[in-house]
Amino acid sequence: MPRPQSFAFTRRADGTALITHHGRSAAVLRDARAARFLAEVEAGDAQWVMARWTGSYKFGNERQARRHPRNRGRV
């Protein structure tokens, strides 16, 4: 699985955290969620943490699997 790239985050003065992916807003975290996110970023790999928090952590063959005959008709 390739390593996530192009994530960035900004700490705002009001205590929120803005996560962007390729320059576009991916998530805005507030209050306790922002504090937990910032603690995880400091403790681990920031790219993986941001990918997990935004839900953009699946990379690979999802599109190909969606077209498989077994999965046709599923949403």
Rank of each mutant, 00 (worst) to 15 (best):
A26F: 07
K58W: 07
F59Q: 15
V49R: 07
D45K: 07
G55I: 03
A51E: 01
R72C: 07
V28L: 14
S6F: 07
M1E: 08
V28Q: 11
S25K: 12
S6R: 13
V41Q: 05
T54W: 07
N61C: 09
G44A: 14
F7L: 04
G55S: 04
R70Q: 14
F7H: 00
H22S: 09
H21W: 13
T16C: 07
A65N: 10
Q5P: 00
S56T: 01
S56W: 01
V28C: 11
A43C: 03
E62Q: 05
A65C: 10
A32W: 04
V28W: 05
R63W: 00
A35I: 07
R67K: 15
F59W: 11
G60E: 01
R36C: 11
R30D: 13
M1Y: 02
L38C: 14
P69G: 09
F37Y: 13
D45E: 15
D45Y: 04
S25Y: 03
R66D: 03
M1I: 04
R30E: 12
P69A: 12
A35N: 10
M1T: 04
R70L: 15
F37E: 02
A27Y: 08
R67D: 11
Q47P: 00
D31W: 04
M50G: 10
E40D: 14
R12L: 14
A17H: 02
A8P: 00
G60S: 02
R24I: 06
F7C: 03
K58Q: 13
P2F: 03
A46M: 06
F37I: 09
A13R: 14
L18P: 00
D14W: 03
G23D: 09
R24N: 11
L38T: 08
R66Y: 07
Y57E: 01
G15Q: 01
P2V: 06
T10R: 14
R63D: 02
A46K: 05
R66A: 14
R12A: 12
R67L: 15
F59D: 12
A27M: 10
K58R: 15
R66E: 03
K58G: 08
S6Y: 08
H68L: 10
I19H: 04
R52K: 13
T54I: 09
Q64H: 10
V75K: 10
T54E: 03
M1P: 10
H68F: 04
H68N: 13
G55D: 01
K58V: 15
R63H: 04
R67W: 05
Y57K: 03
N71L: 15
V49E: 01
V41H: 03
S25I: 11
Q64I: 08
A43H: 10
R12C: 12
W53Q: 07
R74L: 15
M50V: 03
A65M: 14
A35M: 08
E42N: 12
S56E: 06
